[in-house]
Design a protein around this nucleic acid. Structure first.
Lengths: 215, 215
DNA sequence: GAGCCTTTGTGAATATAATAATTAGCTTTC
DNA sequence: GAAAGCTAATTATTATATTCACAAAGGCTC
C-alpha cells in the first residue's frame, strides 16, 4: 500500500475524467488517449497521465487507454463501486433540491433519509421518501447503515446538527452551511459554500475592472 | 496596481474570513487577532496574515485587527460592495433552490431572472419572480444589466445555454452542470460539481478502509 | 520613558503541485 | 523483422503555496 499523499486536485480531476469517460463510452468510443481526455476535460495531457500514475498503469503505450477499463478503474479508485447510503439533514430549498438531484443517484449515492423539524414539512414526501423529524435521525442512520450525511440547514443550526451526527456511525459529512464546523477527527468533513463560488467570480470581475480603470 | 497573481485558495479563505468577521461582529467583538480568526476558520495564523498581506496592512501590531474595518476591506476586495445582478438558467430542483437561497441575497447578489423552457414551469413564480421562457433570456440580461449567470440545467443542455450566454453581455458564469463547457475567454467560468464533492469523501473513505484492511 | 508583552508583517525555508522533457514500449508498415 | 511513429510512464524542472521564524511596531506597566 503506497497511498502516499494524493493531491486533492488529482481526486477532483479523476472524478471529472470518469464522468467524461462515461460520456464517450455512451458514444461508442473504445480507446482514448491522454490527449483526448485532456481536450475533453480542459487539462493538459501530462496532467492526465500524472494523475493516473498515482494509482498504477492503465494504458498501453502507442495505443492509449481502454475507455471501459479506465472508467471502471476510476470508479473503483473513487470508491464508487459500491452504493453509499446518504442522509440529508434539512428539507429547505437546498435540502429538497439535493434529495431530488439525479446526479447523485447516477453515481451510486442513495438517499435513505431526509430530516427537518419544521412541523409543516414532517410527514410530506420527497421522491417517495418521507421527511422525518430530527429525533429519528440516529435511528435511521443506524438502521440503514448510512455513512454519509449532508448538512443543508441554516448556518445557525449547523453545529448542533454536527454534534448530533458525531454521536452516530456517520463516517463523512458534506456541509453546505456557511459555517466552520467542529467535528471529531474520525469523521471526514468537506465544506461546499455556494456563495464562495460566486464571490470568486466577483473578485475576478472586480479586480479585472480595477485593472482596466488603472487603479 | 500590483495584483500579481493572488492564489485562488487565498480568495476562498478571504470569503470565509469575511463571513466569520460578520459573525463575531454581530456578537459585539471589536478587535480580533490573526490567531483568533485562524481558530474560527480552521487555518493557521500565519496563513491569515499572509492572505491579508497581499492586499495591504490592515492591522496594528500588538493589538490585532478592527473587526468592522477588516470586514469592510474584505468585502471591498471581494467586490461585494456593490449589488450584482444574477440570472439563473434552469428552474428544476437546483435552479429553484438557488433562486430561493437566502445566502446569495445576504452577500449582495440579486436574482433578476429565472429561465426554463418547460411549459408547466413558465409563468409560475419563485420568490415573486416569474419564470420566463429561455427566449427572453437575452432581453432580461440586457434590460437588467445582469453580469453573472448561473447554469442549473441538465448536463446535455448546458453547452447550448453557454453558447447563448456567450452572445450576451454576461461577464461570468457559475456552472452547476457536470459537463466541461466551452466559452469565450472574456467570460469568467467557474464549475461547481456537487457529485465531485461527495466523491472526494468516498475516495477518502475507500482508501482509508483499504488501509485498515492492509491492502 | 524604559522595559516588557503582544501581535503584525515579511523574507526565507519548506512543502506541494504542475509542467516539461525524457525514456520505454507497443503497432504497424514495408 | 527492422524501422518509424505513437503514446504511456517516469524523471527532472519549474512554479506555486504554505509554514516558519523573527524583526518592527504599537500598547501597557511601573
Amino acid at each position: 500500500m503506497k497511498t502516499l499523499k494524493i493531491p486533492e486536485a488529482t481526486i477532483i480531476r479523476l472524478s471529472v475524467y470518469s464522468r467524461y469517460l462515461a460520456q464517450v463510452d455512451r458514444q461508442g468510443v473504445v480507446t482514448i488517449s491522454s490527449g483526448q481526455i485532456a481536450a475533453g476535460t480542459g487539462v493538459s495531457p501530462a496532467q492526465v497521465r500524472k494523475d493516473l500514475a498515482y494509482f498504477g498503469e492503465f494504458g498501453t503505450r502507442g495505443v492509449g487507454y481502454s475507455v471501459k477499463d479506465l472508467y471502471w478503474h476510476l470508479i473503483k479508485i473513487l470508491g464508487l463501486n459500491t452504493i453509499w447510503s446518504v442522509v440529508i439533514i434539512g428539507a429547505g430549498n437546498l435540502g429538497t433540491a439535493l434529495t431530488m438531484y439525479g446526479g447523485f443517484r447516477e453515481r451510486g449515492f442513495k438517499v435513505v433519509g431526509v430530516f427537518d423539524n419544521a412541523p409543516d414539512k414532517i410527514g410530506s414526501y420527497l421522491n417517495g421518501l418521507e421527511i422525518y423529524p430530527m429525533e429519528r435521525m440516529k435511528e435511521v442512520i443506524d438502521r440503514d447503515k448510512a455513512q454519509i450525511a449532508i448538512i443543508a440547514v441554516p448556518a445557525e443550526a449547523a453545529q448542533a446538527v454536527a454534534d448530533e451526527l458525531a454521536e452516530t456511525e456517520i463516517k463523512a459529512i458534506l456541509n453546505f452551511a456557511p459555517r466552520v464546523l467542529n467535528i471529531p477527527s474520525h469523521i471526514e468533513l468537506r465544506n461546499v459554500d455556494l456563495s464562495v463560488n460566486l464571490e470568486i467570480l466577483t473578485f475576478n470581475l472586480a479586480s479585472r475592472r480595477s485593472l482596466k480603470t488603472g487603479k
